[in-house]
Amino acid sequence: MSPLIEFRGVTKSFGGPPVLDGIDLTVEAGEVFAVIGHSGAGKSTLVRLVNALEKVTSGSVLVDGVDLTTLSERGLREVRLGIGMVFQQFNLLRSRTVFGNIAYPLRVAGWAKADRERRVTELLHFVGLADKAWQYPDQLSGGQKQRVGIARALATNPRVLLADEATSALDPETTAEVLRLLKRVNTEFGVTIVVITHEMEVVREIADRVAVLESGRVVEHGTLHEVFTAPRERTTKRFVETVLRARPDADGLAQLRERHPGTLVTAQVRDGSRVGAVLSDAGRHGVRFEVVHGGVKELGAASFGSLTLELVGADAGVVAVVAGLRAVTEVEELG
């Protein structure tokens, strides 16, 4: 893999304090790279630097080895032909049909009429909207609009697809459908995708690597697995917890304790951590257990999560079970 997009010491300000501050990031060709952050963290600005809809204040952005800061407006338009973009509000042309919307970038790129028609038809089938070709955007549902947006972004066979909160205006079911489509774009066409989102669930579904943006800085980045299983920063931990209810918060713990007088422990669950095996042996120590909180999700190819357990039995037995858990995974005693 080779870097397709590079941020080198990028700073961006709109006159006031910097919106982005000292960004160094590399996106490899063929990967799905997610940037997660709360609103105002600067992620929409960050993604707009890749197709130069915004210009850096200092530093440089390289796409396919070309430093965008050295290009004229005309040169940037050439680069933009090779970068598709999908938007939260879809941004379809209301005056054009689905067909017309997908054909628009092909007109911009100067494709001949016959080629345009062939390509649009191909894309309509890919996104499953062949029967909607002559409808107008206002006649479509949100999920259909975003599929048109994706088809339009892919029209000119770009190497890079930028998805700016592409699923944030959609309901969970439609979100999953659009994410599956994006994943297909990545695997079937080898398109590198940069996903901007504030939802960790989106990152979990689709990303290979992820960067966490906070107040214009990258506070943490790594592979999906690294960031989910060993988050270092508080912001990252919070994001991870939105997907995996890692351990009960203070209120939740107080409520659990009222109903569960036994010993409460939170055990991390990973592939091969054999938490289940330890628990099935608990009976031999005269200990009963109950799962009271938590969740396990798949993360790429691996499973990951945590379970909070109530252990009831003689002190010695409980200590033995906790020791058994400690031998296979990380355990936190909640008392």
């Binding site: 197709n51 809809l53 338009r77 050439e78 680069v79 933009r80 032909l81 970068i83 598709g84 973009m85 938007f87 509000q89 941004n91 379809l92 042309l93 209301r94 005056s95 054009r96 628009y104 970038p105 007109r107 911009v108 790129a109 339009r152 000119t156 930028l162």
Partner: peptide
């Protein structure tokens, strides 16, 4: 006109002239 639509056209590599001639009037017709 929704500024997002104009941004989308810019992201496709459309020149200001093209946006004026093919997008502005149809979108506000």
């Amino acid at each position: 006109i929704d500024p997002g639509v104009i941004e989308a056209a810019r992201a496709m590599g459309a020149s200001p002239w093209r946006i004026v001639t093919t997008l502005l009037v149809p979108e506000a017709l």
